[in-house]
Structures are given as structure tokens and as C-alpha cells.
Design a protein around this nucleic acid. Sequence first.
DNA 1: TATGAATGAGTGTTCATTCAT
DNA 2: GATGAATGAACACTCATTCAT
Lengths: 215, 215, 215, 215
Amino acid sequence: MNQTAESSNTIDEILEAAAVVFSEKGFDGARVDELARAAGVNKATLYYQIGDKEALYHAVLTRVIKRTANDIEQALETVSDCELRIRAFVEIFARNTGNVRYAAPIMLREVASGGRNLPESAVQEMGRVLGALTDTLQQGIEQGLFRPVNAFMVHMMIVGSLTLYSANEPIRHRNAKHNPEIHDPSHFITTEEAGREVGNLILAAIKAQPQETQS
Amino acid sequence: MNQTAESSNTIDEILEAAAVVFSEKGFDGARVDELARAAGVNKATLYYQIGDKEALYHAVLTRVIKRTANDIEQALETVSDCELRIRAFVEIFARNTGNVRYAAPIMLREVASGGRNLPESAVQEMGRVLGALTDTLQQGIEQGLFRPVNAFMVHMMIVGSLTLYSANEPIRHRNAKHNPEIHDPSHFITTEEAGREVGNLILAAIKAQPQETQS
Amino acid sequence: MNQTAESSNTIDEILEAAAVVFSEKGFDGARVDELARAAGVNKATLYYQIGDKEALYHAVLTRVIKRTANDIEQALETVSDCELRIRAFVEIFARNTGNVRYAAPIMLREVASGGRNLPESAVQEMGRVLGALTDTLQQGIEQGLFRPVNAFMVHMMIVGSLTLYSANEPIRHRNAKHNPEIHDPSHFITTEEAGREVGNLILAAIKAQPQETQS
Amino acid sequence: MNQTAESSNTIDEILEAAAVVFSEKGFDGARVDELARAAGVNKATLYYQIGDKEALYHAVLTRVIKRTANDIEQALETVSDCELRIRAFVEIFARNTGNVRYAAPIMLREVASGGRNLPESAVQEMGRVLGALTDTLQQGIEQGLFRPVNAFMVHMMIVGSLTLYSANEPIRHRNAKHNPEIHDPSHFITTEEAGREVGNLILAAIKAQPQETQS
DNA sequence: TATGAATGAGTGTTCATTCAT
DNA sequence: GATGAATGAACACTCATTCAT
């Protein structure tokens, strides 16, 4: 009966498993055998259901990006205050990046490769995310709440710091293991906590100084 | 006679060429044939001179990181003012990332892979970079110049934003070509200019508000 | 009700479609998917109805050979004059080869493969065809109408020339397209017309010279 | 020293071995592993020296055709009498087909496939063979030695009969083994002897009747 | 009877590495 | 020291066949 639900579930499981493998090994490092094994299906089934390695990667990539874009857009829908919108943006992005373990590595590799495998649709999706932030910043500037800042650079700071922090995790832990004497707890907050830090820093950076009126 | 100089020169040329290829294709995507061709040497010569693919990659990676660490340490040597030190840090990092085209993609991929190929020596090198920033921030905080901030997160914001911005370039240009109607010049500043923006934003974020007359 | 008629019809359609595919691609070049698609049935249905690829090929091959053998035997039944029998033989063979497009390629490939897939029954069938010609020639020789010739070689000449000519068609047309300046209309007669030419040549070759008695 | 001679020898050995395998199995039936094993080289070496399966097949095909064309042209160079030229043509073709075991199956399969893999150069080569015969026939007709015949059909008869006879061999032997009671020695002459038979038959078919005292 | 889905066993091709010179 | 040639071990992908429904 629920053939559709069932099979889209199968495909979804394949994509979920593939996302993990691709995030760990990258496109070229991932083996199709491994992708199939991780998904618990026969290699030929993978080809039958989705197509070749590239098609699988495209599907994974699009899915990751679309999910983040959707979450952010949805979260911002009900918030109108500019500062809260910024906080919401950073919070959702951080939560997504923290929870969906594979998102950050996949995105970093994709950027590193010059977006070689980035389908146009995915770029559009990313544009939605950027647009949400840019619009909010613009609005805040017009309302005199924010200083005039380069919105794109603010975007880079939020996305770059949180993606890097999240993907960094294995290196940080390895480092802590090798150099336990210099263990710094601030290196081991969750990505969500990191999001709050970043949110605070970004707002401190962009908020107009109220004291300007103090004479 | 100057055999040594000559061959170290050759080795340097090989590493430089290999860095470009690795940055474009990643470790798994790069082909040894291609690496040899790019370096203008026979494949077997490459093995004779440097060793296998992994050894070549390690050499490239260490070289990239060491160069950045050296440049930053050197630049900070003569600066003592905390704010100027922050500016110098960001500026040097941005200049390096902007000029050495292959640095950002290589670092992003390395982080994405969980530092799988990061030799301990390289991690130490990165620690030096982080240490330089952390110390400066700590000092500024103690001097009442900076608010108490999470130094590691500030580091992530600087490094993340600039690395991402630099590596982003091909995607930004592709996007501009496909959607010329929404061309935004702020997406196309140089990495050095981006560094200044980031420097300003970071300082705005961390500087203590002098007028807050804490009584 | 007419289940049998219907399914034998279906099987016949499958065999007809498969013959075309096999003639174009050969046994190893044909894909079961393609054979099923060409027949308009599901792949699993094909297995259910006929069996595996080899069984399908056997069925196709036997059918092709049997048809030719039947046609020739039937045509010769009512002809007793030796010369006319030779003409009938060539004519029927040419007509069959010309009309049943897939016959020639299938036979050529089968011969080329050393008859690897030729079932004994099919060989017997071919023996009937050869026998019909051989008997006629023998009879003609005994009647002083034909010179004593190697019957098998005459058979090769008839079958070889017409099969080759028919299967040749795509090459001839391609050649004509690439070298239109040397277009020779004698390369583009129908296989039936070719049969008449071959019939004339063969008879000229084997007929006893009546003038031997002149002197 | 004789690097060239040596390596062209290696390639030649590969081509010779591949010709045998392709003639037995056809393009699709031949396995690259098998081709390499037959040539006594590693599979990767085969790719290094020649290229992929298709390139190998092209090389084999061109070589086979060129050899026959060369032999025939060379043999006809010194013969001017029309009848002798016809005999020479048939004899050389038969000898080639008989000695070079793989030639006939390869050609039959190629024709069967519609010349799908026949490079233009090979078609030209075949044109030379056909041209040699056609010119001789035309000349003989003009000299009143031959009846006006369809030269292309004569060509088909010669080439078709001998190719078929040669490729037929396994089937004939198998048949003889299964039906020893009807063993006919005329089925087991050499291809060269078959060539003489065909030569006689063809000449008998095309020679003008001298006694027809055309007044 | 019919079929979408699944799969074990290949299949052509590539690759990092080594060797002979 | 340098290089054309060689190769074992993968690798992405396909195919004939079967299975569950």
C-alpha cells in the first residue's frame, strides 16, 4: 500500500548512509562498495535505485543543503525583530550543523573543490540562506539598529566559523589527547553553544552604538 | 656542484605544483600521473625524489601550514599594541590565504577529513598560530581593552570566514555568471580587503565599550 | 480460451523481436533488457515464457533455419527440371535472405563462431537445404546437363554470395554516402535481383557445353 | 638498439594473439583478461601499449584487411592476362583466408554487424580489393574474353564462398563426427583447393563462348 | 501470469607503485 | 639520477538471473 512511503524511505536511508560516508571520505575517497554496505543494500541495488556515484552524491548534497535552507527559512518566518532574527539564524544554522554531523565536512569539501559538483539547484538553495541574512541586516541598518556592514562578510563569519568549528571536532579531540596538559574547555563546547558565542560576537560587531547619542 | 641547491629547488617546484593539484582535486582526486605532469617530472622521478603519494601530500601540507605560521609569528614580533596585533594577525592571514591560492582548499579539505593526514608537526604549527591570537586576546582582556570573549571562537571566525571566502571564489564567480542581474560587488572584493572587513568586525565585536562607566 | 494461440503468438512476437536484436548485436552483444524491451514484455516475463538468454537464442536460430529449409523444400517439390530446380533454389534462398532481414547476419555470426550455438537439429535442417541442391546437381550431371562440379562448392557460392550481399547492405550504403562520386548502381540491386544474377552465373558455370558434340 | 623493431614486435604479437581471440569470440564475447592472457602480457600493459578494447579491435581489423589487400595488389602487379589475373585473385584470396585462420570469422562478424566497427580506412582497403577485380573483369569484357557480368556479384561469389567455406570448417568437422555415414570428402578440401574450384567455376561462368561465331 | 526490485559474479578500465635500463 | 614500460590490486559499473508479490 504505502509503496511510495516505503520506497522513498529506502532511498532516504541510502542517502542518509551515503552522506556519512561522503562526509568522512569525500567523493573521490568514498568507495561505491562502502556506500552500498553502509546503506545495507547491494551495490547493484544502489545503481538501480539512484544511479551512479555522481548521481548519489548530487542527491546527498542537494538534500543536505535543502534541509538547512528549509529550517532557516521556517525559523525566520515568525520572527520580525532584527536582532532576534540574527540570533535565530545563527542558532538554527549552528543546531543544524551540530546535529547533522555530516553537513559541515560535505560543505567544506564542496567549497574546496570550487563547487565542482554543486548543482545549480543547490546554489539557489544556498542563495536563499544568504538572502535571509542579507535582508535582515539591510532592514536592521535601515532601522538604525545595525551599523552599515558588509553583509556577505558577516555571512562568511557565521557560516565559516560554525562549519569550521563543527568539522574541527576530530582534530580538537586528537589534539587534546596528545597534549592533555594544555586542555582548554572552551575548545569543547557544543556547536550549539558555539552558535550562541558567535551570535553574541556578531551582534556586538554589528549593533549600532547607542551611546552615540550620549553627548 | 650546487647539486643540493638544485635538487632542493626541484623539490620545491614539485611541491608547489603538487599543492595546486591537491588543492583542486584533493588527495584522493589527484592522480600521481597528473602530479608528475604538473611538476614537469617523470612519475618515477617523483617517487625517487620524494616518495609515494602520501609522502608528497604530507610535504605539501606541512609546507603550507608552516609558511602561514611563520608569516604570522614574524609579523607579530614587532607589534605590541593589542588592537594592532589583532589587525596584523587578520591581515597576514588574509594576505596569505589570498595570495597562496591553494592554501584555503587544502586546509578546508584537511579539516573536512578530520585531519586524517595532518601530521603531528603540522598540528603543532597550527597551535602556534592559534596561540598567537589567544595570547593577544588574553592580554587585551587583562588590559581592559577587550571584552572577555571565547578566544577559540574568535579564531574560528577569523580563520573560517577568510578561508571560506577565499575558497568560495569559483562558486561566487559561477553564480555571478549565471545570475548577472543580482550581481553584488561586495561579493568580489579581494581576500585582503575581506581581511580588513573581518578585522573591523572582529574588533568591533571584542572591544570593550569605554563609555560603560562601570561603577 | 485461445490461451494457447495467444501465448504462442506472444512467443512468436518475442522470437521475432529477439531475432532482430540478435542479428544486430550478436549473442554476446545483445542485452536481455534490450531483448525484453524490443519484444515489449517484462524481462521476468521473458524468462517465464522462454527461459534464459541461450534458450531464447536457440529458439530464434532454429526458427530462422527451419523457415528457410521449409521454403526451399516446398518450392522444389513441384519442380523436376534440373535447371529450373537450381533457379528455384537460388531464387527462394535469395528471397528469404532478402525479406527476412535478420537471417543473414545471424547465420554469418553463427558460422563465424564455429557453430558454437548451433543445435544439432539446426544442423540437420541445414543438411536438408544442402541435400536438395546436391541431389539436383548430381541428377543434372547424370543427365549430361551439368558438368561434373563440386556440389558443396557450388552451394558455398550460392549461399555465401547471397548471404554476404544481403548482410553487406549497411556497409554498401555507408560507403555510397561517403564516396558518392563512385556510386555504382550494380551495388544496390535487391537481394532478389542479386539472386537472379547469381542463378545465371551459377548455371553458366555448371552447364555442360552443348558444342562439345559439334565437330 | 632495435627498440623500434622490438616494441613493434611486442605490439604485433599482441595483435596476432588478439586476432585469434576476437575471431573465436567476437568483440563482445572476447574478454580483455583473455586477450591479455593470450598475448602473454598483463592487462594493464595492453592498455598502456594499445588502448582500450575497441582500439585493440580496430587495430586487429585494419591489420587483417590491409594484409589481404596488400597481398592481392602485389600478386596482380605482374600479371596482365585477364584470365590469369582472375585466377591469381582467387588463389591469393583463398590462400590468405586459408592460412590466416582468424581472417574469415572476423570479416564475417564485421559484415554481420553492419560494419559497426569498420574504420573508414579499412573500407578503403576493401575497396582496393574490389577495384582490382572489377578492373580486370571490365578489361576482359572489353577484350571480348568475358561475358558482360555484374562484377560486384562475381566479387560476392568469390569472397562469400571462400570466406564461408573457411569459417565453416568447425561445423563441417562436427557434422562429420556426428554423421560419419554420410562423410563426403569434397567437404574437406583445403581452402586453397577450394579456391581452385571456385576459380574454375567463376571462369566457366564468365568466359565468353568462343564458338559463338558472332557474324 | 506478470513485474518491480534485488543481487552475485563478473567486466572494462584505472591507478599507485615498481622495475630494468 | 632519470625514465619508458610493466603490473597487482582495486574500482565504478553492468548483466543475466531470481525473487517476492
